[in-house]
Simulated scan of single mutants.
Amino acid sequence: MIRLSRIMASAAIALSLGGCALLGGGAKTPAWLLTLTPAAAAPPSINRTASVGESVTIDVPVIPEALRTTRVPVQSGPIAIAYVKDLTWVDRPDKLFQDLVAETVTRTTNRVVLDPRQSNLDPGLTVTGNLSRFGFDSQENAVLVRYDATVSANGGSAVRTRRFEAREPADGTAASVGPALNSAANRVAAEVAQWIGGV
């Protein structure tokens, strides 16, 4: 009985250590991480004032389960999804895309852009959305960024929606998919900024 207890204890320790390795202790660190870089030129300085209701808050978009990771999905047909080899985001794509849109709006419009944590300062315009596609499509040999945006103003009394979509050619490798996604995301962000600037 004592021997059996010792065997079970040893097995439990082995399983515990193995679990640690699976959770990251033994995981291989990626050689490099991917991020999104704004294409719009940065102004030398920004000093703006917004009246009540004129500021803009960009929320983190809603994303499907396939994007709730730091890896880049590959769409292979209507139901099959894999991931691009050796390509990892520095953060989840919903947060990276939010930062990109906010920075692009700041650089290309005269709007005062608030962080969602500052939205209580001014109701203003609130931009929410659904980032439904943000990866590589193997059937089209291109990356696809699709963002369904919603702008609400005056506490929700006025609501507008619009779909933004951009494609860029790629061959499915990390070296091509990374820059293509950055380019497509910037095209969408620029169109969103132009749309918001005119609201």
Score class of each variant (00 low, 15 high):
179 P>K: 01
176 S>V: 03
75 Q>W: 14
70 T>E: 08
98 Q>E: 13
53 G>C: 12
107 R>K: 11
173 T>P: 06
137 D>L: 08
29 T>A: 11
126 T>D: 04
47 N>S: 12
72 V>Q: 03
174 A>R: 05
119 S>P: 02
180 A>P: 08
198 G>D: 14
61 P>D: 07
186 N>H: 00
95 K>R: 15
107 R>E: 04
165 E>Q: 13
106 T>L: 04
87 L>I: 13
151 V>R: 05
82 A>V: 02
122 D>R: 09
153 A>S: 06
98 Q>G: 06
187 R>Y: 06
166 A>R: 03
79 I>D: 12
113 V>K: 02
51 S>P: 03
166 A>P: 04
70 T>F: 07
40 A>L: 04
159 V>E: 10
133 R>L: 13
162 R>G: 08
43 P>Q: 03
75 Q>K: 14
24 G>M: 09
23 L>I: 09
131 L>I: 12
174 A>L: 07
136 F>N: 01
197 G>M: 10
47 N>D: 12
157 S>A: 14
81 I>W: 12
51 S>N: 14
70 T>S: 06
61 P>K: 02
153 A>R: 03
102 A>Y: 00
171 D>K: 05
62 V>C: 09
105 V>D: 00
8 M>W: 15
52 V>Y: 13
101 V>A: 01
97 F>E: 00
10 S>F: 14
21 A>Q: 06
77 G>Q: 12
136 F>W: 06
42 A>K: 10
168 E>Q: 15
81 I>A: 00
134 F>H: 00
150 T>Q: 13
108 T>Q: 05
98 Q>R: 15
90 V>L: 05
84 V>I: 13
22 L>Y: 11
128 T>H: 07
163 R>P: 15
50 A>H: 07
197 G>C: 09
163 R>E: 14
189 A>H: 01
108 T>G: 06
119 S>F: 03
48 R>A: 01
25 G>R: 10
161 T>D: 07
78 P>V: 09
126 T>Q: 13
184 A>N: 04
80 A>E: 15
125 L>K: 07
66 A>E: 10
128 T>C: 08
79 I>E: 13
3 R>G: 11
34 L>P: 00
80 A>K: 15
118 Q>P: 07
40 A>P: 02
79 I>W: 12
73 P>M: 08
189 A>I: 01
162 R>I: 11
136 F>V: 01
77 G>E: 11
67 L>N: 10
194 Q>R: 14
71 R>Q: 15
127 V>Y: 02
31 A>D: 08
184 A>P: 04
162 R>E: 11
94 D>T: 03
87 L>V: 13
160 R>W: 15
76 S>I: 13
152 S>D: 15
117 R>I: 13
177 V>K: 02
33 L>Y: 01
78 P>E: 12
166 A>Y: 04
150 T>R: 13
10 S>G: 14
58 I>K: 01
191 E>N: 09
97 F>P: 00
140 E>K: 15
88 T>E: 12
60 V>T: 12
